[in-house]
Structures are given as structure tokens and as C-alpha cells.
Amino acid sequence: MSESWGPAIVEAIRRISGTAEDTILPLHEPEFAGNEWQYVKECIDTGWVSSVGSYVNRFEKDLAEYTGSGYAIAVVNGTAALHISLLLAGVEAGDEVIVPSLSFVATANAVAYCQATPHFADVEPKTLGLDVERLDAHLAEIGAVGSDGSLYNQRTGKRIRAIVPMHTFGHPVDMESLLELGERYRLAIIEDAAESLGSLYKGRATGTFGLFGILSFNGNKVLTCGGGGAILTQDKELAAKAKHLTTTAKVPHAWAFDHDQVGYNYRMPNINAALGCAQLERVPLFLERKRGLAFEYEQFFRTVPGISFVTEPEYTRSNYWLNTILLDRSDMVVRDRILQDTNAAGILTRPVWTPLHLLPMYAACPSMDMYVTIEMQGRIINLPSGTSLAREK
């Protein structure tokens, strides 16, 4: 049966997308059909293309309003946003930060930028995000509260400072349980919402629950600025600090160049923000199309024994950033056969990332038992998910 899965998936995606056999279908291509050219051309015509310009302020304001966050700080990419958020959350050299192993490498890299250590946690099958219940048991086993009130890893002697949940493929993590866990252990929660713009958990936007949330606007995201990211926070003082740090910690002055601490040149250019403003205007339409595409995929895979389609968890509304199927059992040979068949036919499917705790630079980092993550590596396949695949027919 598994030998026919690849050709059947190719046929279904061609039918759903209405594309010819020789059409290449990327995993998630951007779509520019709104005011993108008008806004970008204004930047070019006026010369305001770099780190100063009206579109940066407009994009930050519009983004804060759209997400319901108090403040949004636009930066060059999601990794930079996560780096600054970790620093402002108090992560210091030598600390440990809980991150899912089932994530893009940038989640762990940002921790390493702070000279801290990723402490890898497993995920649960329904959300593909952090398994809060098992993480709680893990922390109870290895953790001890120090004289300063912080949680320490008894095995390494290092302070555990924060948790970074990642909303995998746009599907929200169980934030209510995670916030309770963070409060109990005095751990800062920083949401890696890079993939989940437009997703809701109990009616509230992802990225707005923790001390900070971060977004990515890479070319493959629901909204793209070409490159870019943002820091979300409800705290006015932290927002001001984030803005200061990401603009090289420059002291405001009409002409002088004074800096009061080590800062970072992480500012989003005005020309990228202009693109973001135009894209944000169309996000509701993008989400409607993506959810429609997900519905069509779900309907098809109900008819395919041995494969299931990943749907939004209870109490959530997902943006379905990357539509995802699961083989009923972990089998790398079968998974790779499907990937080979679909990619050979121009359907650019992808496997999940290599689990972070298996990468050479992170292999010695502390971790909990990763049996679900390892299982998911042999079960997950991402399908083409761009908004253009679900245009009105």
C-alpha cells in the first residue's frame, strides 16, 4: 500500500491546486498582489530605504494592533528577535533554557548566542509542541530551587532561566498549562511564534502570552518582508529596552553618536517594513485561503489508510502555516520514498527538521527522554502550503 502513497499524493495535490503536471509547487511561496509595489516604490522614490522611515513605525503599530500585543519592535529576522528577548528576560552566560528539540535550529542558536545552553524537551503528538505534563515531571526530577529562588539543574549545577515554546507549523502550544508551569518554577516564557502569525489560542494571538513573543517574516512565512522579524511584549519598559538594544544602543541625539551599552544592529530597514505593511493588509485573506487548503487536504487524507492529516488542537485556531501529514508509524524508508516520489513530480514536500539534540553542536546538551520527537522524525511530511494554491476557483 505504501508504494502507492507518493503517486496518490501527487495526484491529489495537482487536483486540489488545479496545476499542470509540469508546474513546480514550492513548499510555501510568497504572494504579492496588493500594495507591495506601491509602498516599496515610495521608499525608493523618497530615498528612505534603510533603518529610518515612516513604514517601520507604521508596521510596528499595525502589527501590535493586529496581534493584540501592547508593543511590537521590528527587527531583521526572527532569530535576532529571539536573541534580544532572551537577553532582556535575564538569560546569562552559563544558564540553561528549555527548548523543544523538534524545532528549527534558530531556536537553539539564539540561546547559544547568549552563551547559554539549550536544555532540550520532548513534544506531544497532538500539537507537536512542548509536552507540558512530561516537562513538569522532568523538572521535578532534575530541578532544585536555589537560595536565590531560581530553579537549578541538579545534574549540571546550572540555573534554568527560561522556557521557549515553539508553535510548530502554526499550531499553538497549550499555553495555559505552560504559563502555570513557568510561574511555579519562576521561569520566563518566551514564545517562538515565528511560524504562527494569525494563530489563536483560546481566542488570543500566539506570541502575546509570554514575557516576550517573536515572529518571523522570512520569505516562506504567512506574511513576508523578504526578511524580518518582530518582538512582541505587553510591557512598555521592556519594549523600550528592546528598541534601544536593537538600534545599537544609540543615545537619542540630533547628530551625536553616543552609545550607552553593547547594542545590536538588528533594525528592520524601511523598505522591508513597507513590504510588511502591504502584506499585513492581506493576512486575513491569506489565512482564509490557507484554512480552505487545509480543509481540502484533510478531506483527502481521510480516504488514505496509514496516513493522517494534522489538524488544529482543541481551543485553537491555526494558521496552518505548513500543512502536515503523519504516517501511522515511524518509518524513514517509507517517508523518504514519499518525499522522493513527490519531489520528482515537482511537488516540493519536506521532512521535519533533524531533531536539535541530534545535531553535533548540541549533542552534549542536557535533555529529557526524546521518544516522541524521534518517532515524529520518521512520520512527519510537510505539503505545499502557499496561499496561491487556494485561490478562488
Rank of each mutant, 00 (worst) to 15 (best):
L280Q: 07
A256N: 14
L326N: 08
R302S: 10
I347A: 08
G34F: 11
G226R: 07
A239P: 01
T127G: 06
V97M: 05
G129Q: 02
E314P: 06
Y39T: 00
L327I: 03
M166F: 14
N35Q: 12
E21Q: 14
G94R: 02
I13N: 06
E195L: 13
D336S: 11
F295Q: 15
G149E: 09
Q377N: 14
L245V: 07
P125K: 11
E65K: 15
S388H: 14
Q154L: 11
N35D: 11
V49Y: 02
A140L: 06
N218G: 14
G213T: 04
F286P: 00
A64R: 10
G346Y: 09
D45F: 00
I190P: 06
H28W: 07
T311F: 06
G226E: 03
I24Y: 04
D192A: 08
A81P: 05
C114Y: 00
P165C: 06
W5H: 03
A116K: 08
T46P: 01
V105H: 04
E281M: 09
K61R: 13
I44T: 03
E3S: 13
G203D: 03
G6T: 07
C225E: 15
T349D: 02
G149R: 07
T107W: 00
T224P: 03
A112T: 13
H28T: 08
D328Q: 11
N272W: 01
E281G: 05
G78K: 02
N270I: 00
G229D: 06
A110F: 08
G18F: 03
L327S: 03
E92G: 02
L135Y: 08
L285T: 14
D122L: 06
Y185I: 01
L383D: 02
T206M: 09
D62E: 15
F286M: 10
K241V: 00
C225S: 09
A108C: 08
E281Q: 11
A240V: 06
V283L: 15
Q115L: 12
A345E: 06
T206P: 12
A72M: 04
A12K: 10
L102G: 01
N323C: 14
P125N: 12
L86I: 05
W48D: 13
V262M: 11
F212R: 10
A205I: 01
T354L: 09
L130G: 01
N323K: 05
A81V: 02
M175Y: 13
T233E: 10
L82Y: 07
S4C: 08
P165S: 02
V52G: 05
N153L: 03
A364C: 05
E237Q: 13
V105L: 07
G386A: 04
Y315V: 07
V52Y: 13
E288W: 07
T208K: 02
E65W: 00
F32M: 07
P100T: 08
D62H: 12
R15Y: 04
E237M: 11
R159E: 05
G203F: 04
I380S: 01
